[in-house]
Nucleic acid binder design. Structure first.
Lengths: 345, 345
DNA sequence: CGTTCCCTTGATTAACTTCAACTTGGGTGG
DNA sequence: CCACCCAAGTTGAAGTTAATCAAGGGAACG
């Protein structure tokens, strides 16, 4: 498939390093290993691999340092560079991307994710001798829209995809709840949208042919259908009714976001938190008139409202004092939907 | 055309009232006149017109009062109600819409706009005996995408369309500059997007089949192509390549708005104003590296940044003091594009 | 030549974030 | 089962930011 590409793995944990190497070798790559940043840089400069996978947190020289040093050498600056990162370190992602990393893989990683990220980056890299792989017959069954779609389950806090990745799929949420979030420059998390079963997501990045600009995280155990991007594009470009379906979805999202923009610009935090609760209730209940309970972390709530966790909590206790909501541990119950919605301040 | 529909005009200024009546009568409507709100209400209840045009600012009983009173009477509550409003009274629009007005016409009004608004409302009203006007052959020339599009010129401050109207067209800006704005509940104006020649706009409302949620205002003399909505939908639904073009436009807009959301939620006003200037420069110049001058009112700038006019001005003078921009009357020149863009705070 | 609109600046006030300390609860390992 | 720990939630106090209110300047327009 690929003519023996060489990949350099820089990672201080032996177990992870060996695991990675094994996966890559099984897929037919030649693998170089380095146990810390310093070794990594020297190997990279001697061997000039086709791609580099590099951990961020390492003794001696960390991942940022490696990237920085390699990007100053003309011979190594163009080698595709993918960071490995632990789930927790949210803010780091932006830092790395701004330094010029090409992609991110979050540990613990999925085998498929890893290989497709690697493959994607290599493909993008040698676009010179490209252009020979868009054959594929045009046979589309009608009952199953996306024949190559497959299912995957996510647990609470799992990421379906991550800000800055190359999109590999388009997604449809089948069950559970997800949030789409984006980090600001100073690492605060803004919730762009909440998803409910049936919602498609992630397709805008595919349509714009750019890396994802937001992350998708499960709020509870969820089942998602993954549709390979090529599949999706194929269908959208050749099937009229599907195209217009996505046009409608897009314009719907667009209008919802317009509303959010105005709200964020000029409404008080109190109003925004109230609005966040309403949005949650609207998304996740059929009949908003009766009391609706939901388990939302304060952090998520703050992210929807676009405020600090502390402020969100303060507003929440105000609402509680006013008898609009009830709070029991993590469970928030909206008892006075209408009053909450129409509160003037 | 219409079987002698009756329209009631409630307006205290005789000149405007007569002018309106004349236009409507010429178009074949039967017109009733009322010189103030009180008279208007009694005429409406006696004559039960098919549609009511009503000024807002009036002695005795103002437009809101008229609407309120009529909406309490079962006989009159369903009569389509269109407000007439002077350009200045921005905030009033929301108030009226929330009271149940169906549409707005801004004075001084364009004859065509007036008649199409009236016609639209009447059409929507008797959807009972509707359904006999979607004939039209399917002949679409390829060179001219939208054969029924026509041109129209707008001067500075003119509105192409107005928040809350029923969309009658989809638009493409051919020359000039436009802003898309939306008012917050307390009447502050947020600029959702700036448009440059070539941009399509207003199509999202058409695709969602709902009234417009934003206004489009010319920032300088501009030429716009107006495409009837039916035409647009026809083309989008049946021509693959056009559909995918609009899919791309939509997803592009969507991503731009995501960015704006995060910025509004968590960035300082200083950053937002800087960002607004960058956005202006990016939109309206080909080479952002060289100094770029633009004539923007402080109000518009504040609207883009989502802040008060005073704050926008303060930031502007800070930038001036730092040598990043130069200001001469209304003309702002960005001299240090990069510094402005990358300023950390 | 007055009036209006837009811009600008200063002073005050209100809102919200940040920092820091403390509480609670759920889970884990001894 | 208890002790401990870590994460999430909560509260108070201090500090910052930006909106608001108020006043005045200057150009433009009739």
């Amino acid at each position: 498939m690929h003519s023996m590409k060489t990949i350099l793995v820089i990672e201080d944990h032996e177990e992870i390093r060996e695991n990675l190497s094994e996966i890559l070798e099984l897929d037919g790559y030649s693998v170089l290993k380095a146990a810390d940043g310093k070794i990594g840089v020297s190997v990279a400069q001697q061997e000039l691999p086709d791609l580099i996978l590099c951990d961020i947190m390492m003794p001696n020289l960390d991942g940022y340092g490696v990237l920085h040093m390699l990007s100053r050498n003309p011979q190594t600056m163009r080698i595709p560079f993918i960071f490995l990162t632990a789930k927790a370190e949210k803010i780091d992602i932006r830092k790395g991307m701004s330094l010029g990393a090409d992609d991110y893989i979050v540990k613990p990683f999925d085998e498929t994710d890893l290989l497709s990220a690697v493959e994607n980056r290599l493909k993008k890299f040698d676009l010179i001798q490209d252009g020979s792989q868009k054959a594929k017959a045009a046979t589309k069954p009608d009952n199953e829209l996306f024949p190559n779609g497959y299912l995957k389950n996510y647990n609470k806090k799992d990421l379906v995809y991550h800000e800055g990745e190359t999109p590999t799929h388009v997604y449809q949420l089948l069950s559970g709840k997800l949030k789409l979030t984006r980090l600001s420059d100073d690492g605060k998390e803004m919730v762009l949208d909440l998803l409910k079963p049936g919602d498609y997501f992630g397709y805008w990045s595919v349509l714009q042919k750019q890396t994802t600009t937001e992350s998708a995280e499960a709020l509870e155990p969820s089942q998602v259908m993954l549709i390979p991007t090529a599949d999706f594009m194929d269908v959208v470009e050749h099937e009229n009714n599907i195209a217009s379906k996505f046009i409608r979805l897009l314009s719907n999202n667009l209008l919802a976001q317009q509303y959010k923009i105005v709200e964020l610009a000029y409404n008080s935090v109190r109003k925004r938190v109230a609005s966040a609760l309403i949005q949650l209730a609207d998304k996740y209940t059929d009949d908003p008139s009766k009391p609706f309970s939901m388990a939302v972390s304060r952090e998520t709530l703050a992210g929807i409202a676009g405020t600090s966790v502390e402020s969100a909590i303060r507003m929440l206790s105000e609402f509680k004092a006013d008898g609009l909501v009830e709070v029991d541990k993590a469970t928030i119950t909206v008892t006075q939907y209408d009053k909450l919605k129409n509160a003037p301040y």
